[in-house]
Design a protein around this nucleic acid. Structure first.
Lengths: 199, 199
DNA sequence: AGATTAAGCGTACGATCGTACGTTATGCAA
DNA sequence: TTGCATAACGTACGATCGTACGCTTAATCT
C-alpha cells in the first residue's frame, strides 16, 4: 500500500508524528528525538515522516508549538475568566502546578524539558521558546501589578523576582517527581508559590 | 609522536578530557557529548580519548563526579565550618546561588543541566545523580531540623517542602540567565530562598 | 474521463556515532 | 639492559543520523 493523497489523513499523520515526538522528547529531550525512531513508532518510513515537515527543525518547532498549545489549554484557558489580579494569579498557580505534575507526557512536563534543553543554545527553537515563555511571564506580571494596585499585595513587591520564583517552583516539579519520586511535588510547589507571593 | 607511558601524563589527559566533556555538556547536555568532538577539542584521536575510560558511560560517570567535586568545593567546603542550623543554611544558600550563577562552565551550571537531563532516564548516571543530590538534601534537612530545634524557625516548618523550594530556586538560575538574560537571577534566587525558609 | 496534486515508500548518500583491534612508542622495574 | 605495561595512534566495523531523489498510488479538480 502506498500513499493516499487525502489532505485530512495527512493532517492526522502530522499530528501523530508530532505527538510521538512530544512523548519521546519528554523523556530524552527534544533534540535526541530521531526521525528513524519516530518512523518506527508511527509505523511509517523515515521519508514519510520527514516529508511532512521537510526538515527536522520544522518538526521540532511544531513540537514546541504543541507544547505551548497544551499549556494554553490546560493552564491559561482555565484561568483567563478569573478577574485580573491576585485571584487570577492564584488560580494560575494552581492550574500551573497541577499541569506540571500531570502534563500527559510519559517523561514529565515537556515545557520544562525544552526550557532546560534549549536555554543555552542558539537557533529557532531557542527563539520560539523565549517568545512563548515571555508571553506567559507578561500575564504573570500583569496580574502581579494589578494585585499591587488593588492593595492585595504590598507596595514594594519585587514583581520580577516573584515571577522568577514562580517559574522556579513550577519547573522543579518534574525532576522532583522523576528523580526523587516525590509525589507531592505539585503541592510543595504551590505552597512555595504562596510564600513567594507573600499571601 | 606516539604514546608515552607516563602515568602522570595519562592522568592529565584524563582530566583534560573530562574537563572538555563538562564544558560541552554544560551547553548541549551530557549525552550529546561525543567522543569524536572531544577528540577534536583535546587534539587527540578518538581511540586515545575513549581508551582512557573504556566506555562512554564511564566517561559520563567521571564527568558527573567532576560536577559533584566542583559543587563540594565551591559550596559545601565554604560553609561546612559554620555552626549547623540556620547560620549554615543561609551561608549555604548564599554560596549555592553564587555557584549556580557562575559555575565556571560556558553553558551554565552543569549540576542543573545533568539533573534535568537524566531525571527521567534509567542507568548508572541517573543513579549516581540521585545519590549525589540526596547527600546534599540530607545536609539541608539537617540544618533545617537543627534550626527548628534551636527555635530559629517555627515548629511547624515543612522541612521537605522547604528543601524542594531551595532546590527549585537554585535550579532556575541558569535558564533565567541563559534564556531571559536575567543577570540578577542569583539575587532573586537568594531572596526567594529566604522567603521559603521564612526568615 | 482525464489531468493534477500530493502522501508515503524505497533506496541511496555522506557523516558521524561508539567500539574493537592491532601497532607503535615510551617509561619503569627487574 | 632487557622486558613488560600502557598511552596513544590509525584503521575498520556496523549502526544510525538527516536528507535527497524518484516512484507508486490515491484523492481531488477541471
Amino acid at each position: 500500500m502506498a500513499g493516499r493523497a487525502s489532505a485530512q489523513a495527512a493532517l492526522e499523520t502530522r499530528r501523530s508524528v508530532v505527538k510521538a515526538a512530544a512523548d519521546l522528547a519528554s523523556i530524552e529531550g527534544l533534540d535526541s528525538v530521531t526521525i528513524g525512531r519516530l518512523a518506527e513508532i508511527v509505523q511509517m518510513s523515515k521519508s514519510g515522516v520527514i516529508g511532512q515537515f521537510r526538515t527536522k527543525e520544522a518538526l521540532q518547532l511544531e513540537t514546541v508549538e504543541l507544547v505551548f498549545a497544551d499549556f494554553r489549554t490546560r493552564v491559561w484557558d482555565t484561568v483567563k475568566r478569573f478577574p485580573q489580579g491576585l485571584p487570577r494569579l492564584l488560580a494560575a498557580c494552581d492550574a500551573w502546578t497541577e499541569y506540571a505534575a500531570d502534563p500527559g507526557y510519559p517523561g514529565g512536563c515537556l515545557m520544562t524539558q525544552v526550557t532546560y534543553d534549549y536555554d543555552g543554545r542558539d537557533g529557532a527553537v531557542h527563539e520560539r521558546l523565549l517568545e512563548g515563555r515571555n508571553q506567559w511571564r507578561a500575564t504573570l506580571r500583569a496580574d502581579l501589578a494589578t494585585a499591587v494596585e488593588a492593595g492585595d499585595l504590598p507596595e514594594d513587591t519585587d514583581v520580577e523576582s516573584v515571577v522568577f520564583g514562580l517559574e522556579s517552583l513550577a519547573s522543579f516539579i518534574t525532576p522532583a517527581r522523576l528523580l526523587h519520586g516525590d509525589m507531592r511535588a505539585a503541592d510543595r510547589a504551590y505552597q512555595g508559590m504562596r510564600r513567594i507571593i507573600g499571601v
